[in-house]
Write a protein that binds this DNA or RNA. Structure first.
Lengths: 219, 219
DNA sequence: ATTAAATTTTAGATAAGACTAAAATATTGT
DNA sequence: ACAATATTTTAGTCTTATCTAAAATTTAAT
């Protein structure tokens, strides 16, 4: 099935938001990500729902169906493969390629992507270290990382702690962080390594020391 | 300036039609090329005219302005460079690449094309033998070819004859062909090499012998 | 537990690009 | 030259994706 530019971008946005959302993805969150208005999101989400790409119940947010997730992952696959091409072959800097890959990811041709993948040596990660899904949408899991190693706007799921003193665990408890909690880095201070993170719907401030003792899995 | 997908496709179509049109390009011709309706063409042509990309006088067809021609040539440049990429690097067959290049030609990034061009070794011709305009829209002229070497849908300008007997020249005269006449191959018979060609607005039938004695310049 | 505030949805409008049907203009044949 | 034919344009409609303003619903606060 072939989807419009707009539909593809919505699916991608919902996929990324779902990774760090406790519940269904909010209309407002999608609107912000897409730089559009909530009413436009409602319209599009209805359309995606009719096409069985998302589950949608009025006022209760959106989740991707299996079909939707698979579609999102093929777009992400294309995006990341093109980024590898731009950096490895065309010698772009890794921080210059996002905008161009945003366009290239919408080129429709399976054969093209198959050949591009081969040409690039079937890479597992893009130039930012994000994993490249295979043609069926399977992602090679990254090793767990310390939260302190994530950069702004990266997100992950808490999978463990380095230090496990009761004091630290109780502190995490107070911060509403436990195994399986989705975390996104909203900001990172350069001089002291402290972070503002998103935990569920709430912002939270954590020190470098805390971030260095929390394992997350990105994807 | 950045133009829409549709605007870019119209400019490209008009460019190709102008090469083989004696007069301004007809609304109907554009409609046929674009697989759309004449009324849609009129609408778009008005818009292109407002943007100073074409000269348009009601009922009298369209020609590209300098600005329009330059824009068309940058799109053609992108199309042909991507075709080289697809064939040389991704090992596509030269007859599989057109559709994909039709999509890739609309990616907006000067830097991308500059780097792609360098990566490909600054090629002068695409896999079909068509010349690749440089970044300023200059085309490296092809050597003159025999009309008999053109394939269906290729066009060119008559630049000379191989045989110059008065009989042949008089015959060409009767066929309304002279130096500077634009010719397009509409059909080519396999078994005897005869052709149906477009001369100005009229179709004409010519034998293999005639086609083998007429030089054309393609571009 | 109500009210206030925030979020989400609905209703109606707009712009781009395309379409149909009908009107206007050009071209052609005799 | 003028009627018949072909081409082109106009007028009005449709679809997709957006928007604003107002109504509906949920969440939060006292």
């Amino acid at each position: 099935m072939k989807y419009s530019l707009s539909e593809e971008n919505y699916l991608k946005a919902i996929y990324h938001l779902e990774k760090i959302a406790a519940t269904g993805v909010a209309t407002n969150a999608i609107a912000e990500q897409m730089e559009t208005k909530p009413s436009s999101v409602t319209d599009m989400v209805k359309k995606l729902s009719e096409k069985k790409l998302v589950n949608y119940i009025k006022y209760q947010g959106v989740t991707l169906t299996e079909k939707g997730k698979k579609t999102a992952l093929t777009i992400i696959r294309k995006h990341r493969l093109w980024e590898v091409f731009l950096v490895d072959k065309l010698k772009f800097h890794w921080d210059q390629v996002h905008e161009i890959a945003e366009q290239l990811e919408h080129i429709h041709s399976e054969e093209l992507i198959t050949r591009l993948d081969k040409f690039l040596g079937e890479p597992d990660f893009d130039p930012h270290g994000d994993p490249i899904p295979d043609k069926d949408g399977n992602i090679k899991r990254t090793e767990k990382k310390l939260l302190s190693d994530l950069n702004k706007n990266q997100g992950g799921v808490c999978v463990g702690v380095k230090e496990s003193s009761p004091e630290f665990l109780q502190y995490l408890d107070k911060k509403k962080i436990t195994i399986g909690t989705k975390i996104k880095v909203l900001g990172k201070e350069f001089f002291d390594g402290s972070m503002v993170i998103l935990v569920g719907k709430d912002q939270s401030f954590i020190s470098k020391k805390t971030a260095e003792n929390l394992y997350v899995q990105t994807n």
